[in-house]
Design a protein around this nucleic acid. Structure first.
Lengths: 362, 362
DNA sequence: CTGTTAGCGCATTCAC
DNA sequence: GTGAATGCGCTAACAG
């Protein structure tokens, strides 16, 4: 028993396929009577409009494409769910592509989504300033918004101010009495955010007249960072605080430090970035910069959809969402007041702990 | 500048669209000379076969559909990446749909993927024994394989033996001297795995002549389980071990217990299920059942693809992959030998710690 | 308001 | 080995 087509529905409703199409897809003018007959016929046959025929004819698929580096980092999983929320609210579906932090695969994945006639593209790319994927979107005329990336001029994006946030981290570390800072980076080549956070840290330390940060880059594919950390400490034995370019990396670094016999935060403080939920569940709890992850996806999709509804391209500017430093036991001593006092902790001025919505009580 | 079509390629190559199609999609017989001219023309024009026209014409999209409850649990993220690996190896792409643990959305999402002519469907459903999504796949003739779900007769699936694994957990808990066990379940209505794990626990306890487990169901949407845990302890104050139906839940439960002033594992042991990487990074490290998550997705897709290559439907049976209990500080005292000794810990016989590949050293 | 026509891009007949 | 013709399912023009 073959899938019914719109012609079957039309036949059953006693009208032409064109009228059935208008009735079913809300297109042109249809009499109320015809609409009812078509709806009834469609229901009776279990008919659904075929997205393929539709997309081929209309040039748009009714789907939003999402391009993310990986699903392994919950940050992207949450952002994708944010996109889905916004898309579903507009009656669109979502097509997800992951590229494994591989800049080369970005362009190909973007093309694959564009080929499927996505109505818009929400992406996180390795390097927003030189992205083939953004290029492809432009050239194809597919509206496009970045998330997480801070965009170059002319590109729409939703992000946080990575440099400023890193500055907040520097401030908090210095306030906690840490003096010799290191930065553990996911590879700059695969994450411009990582580089911006490093730059923000370095700039803040320079401004404070503090020693410049040590840098170690690690691969996103690795989960065991003991070797990299050992090498770092061989080079700079007296490091007392590590800023990691994201939370999942920070958790792995804490485990690596523990394996190397260094205690967190007594020997080395660790701060992450993103504010993933699991960071608040560990012990020590993870000090981090909380960012509105799901909102990033939702807003990026929202920009696309709002623009689409008005038949114009999305505004080529960055929407910078607020971030918030969240203190945690991995930096300073809620769990260890003595050590904290030794290190002359002062509360970071004017910064209150903001709970993420998932953690808030009802 | 319009996208080139296959007709443009044909014109440039001096042949008919039919020949160009045969050359580009590896279909029928083409002379070597023609193939070279077509390839050159396609390259010169930057031509790519249009997946839409192709799918419409062939009735298959060259994509595998994946249906998962959520991206928030890394278990599914990993499994999806497993599917992607297998699909990419076969030259297919992946279409992901998430349904937010909502059984009602399952069928709709499955239909949406089927409408897009996916070559096959890899799904994790709320209840494999009564799944509308599986039903839809069958009726549409779309090959389908479950992952994580233990299937009813006649359905292909890749899974672990949830009941047996839960039995292993019961054994480990008893061996660690725990006597009053509780089970913290993700809602049975949205996860048959959760129910099976509970059943396995209950059966093993019955067989050992131990007290039956207390049960508390919590929502996957919640992150704060203090109220549920408080209610559980009000009912059964002397509970000394909690088995949680998955690792993310277990981590949240540990945080909840800590918030309630109960120490883990001294007051209450906690064991999870899945073996997510982050569980090995926390303190206390999470005792759990390690399952081959990515392999689940890879194998499910593999079954589909192997069957497709031979033009037959996938074998309607379960492929049961091995699981492994992994001891951790949340159950017994690697971190706390004194307590552990008090509780008369014996090493679980014949079970070695197996590291997941991500954690292994090189 | 409705029907007829045409074609989105492609792969497959079927002739040659 | 190649080309011409056809239609996958749908909707946008256009005419009525």
């Amino acid at each position: 028993m073959r899938r019914p087509t719109i012609a079957d529905v039309a036949a059953r409703a006693g009208c032409s396929p064109a009228t059935a199409s208008r009735a079913l897809s809300g297109g042109g003018p249809v009499s109320e009577a015809a609409r009812l007959r078509v709806d009834a016929a469609a229901r009776a046959l279990g008919f659904r409009l075929d997205p393929l025929g539709r997309a081929l004819r209309r040039g748009r698929s009714g789907a939003i494409g999402v391009l993310a580096p990986s699903l392994a980092n919950p940050v992207f999983a949450e952002a994708i769910e944010g996109v889905e929320v916004a898309a579903a609210a507009a009656g669109l579906t979502v097509l997800v592509a992951c590229v494994g932090y591989d800049a080369a695969r970005e362009a190909a994945a973007a093309e694959a989504l564009i080929d499927r006639r996505v109505d818009g593209l929400v992406m996180t790319v390795a390097d927003a300033a030189a992205s083939l994927a953004v290029d492809r979107a432009r050239r194809s005329g597919t509206p496009c918004a970045l998330m997480f990336n801070q965009p170059p001029d002319g590109v729409t994006a939703v992000c946080v101010d990575n440099r400023a946030a890193a500055g907040d981290v520097a401030e908090a570390m210095l306030a906690a009495g840490r003096r010799r800072l290191g930065f553990v980076a996911g590879r700059f080549a695969t994450s411009d955010r990582s580089r911006q956070r490093f730059e923000g840290l370095a700039a803040a330390l320079a401004e404070a007249g503090a020693r410049p940060p040590e840098l170690v880059e690690v691969s996103y594919a690795d989960h065991d960072h003991r070797a990299a950390l050992a090498a770092l400490f061989a080079r700079a034995p007296r490091i007392d605080a590590l800023f990691c370019s994201n939370d999942m990396l920070a958790l792995a670094v804490i485990a690596g430090l523990r394996a190397l016999g260094r205690s967190v935060p007594d020997d080395v403080a660790v701060v992450g970035f993103d504010g993933v939920a699991v960071g608040a569940l560990t012990q020590p709890s993870l000090a981090t910069v909380v960012t509105p992850t799901a909102e990033m996806g939702r807003a990026a999709a929202g920009l696309l959809l709002a623009a689409r509804a008005q038949g114009r391209p999305p505004a080529p500017e960055a929407l910078i969402l607020p971030h918030q430093f969240r203190p945690g036991e991995s930096l300073a001593g809620a769990a260890d007041p003595d050590t904290a006092r030794q290190r002359q902790v002062r509360p970071s001025p004017g910064k209150a702990l903001r709970q993420t919505s998932e953690e808030s009580e009802t």
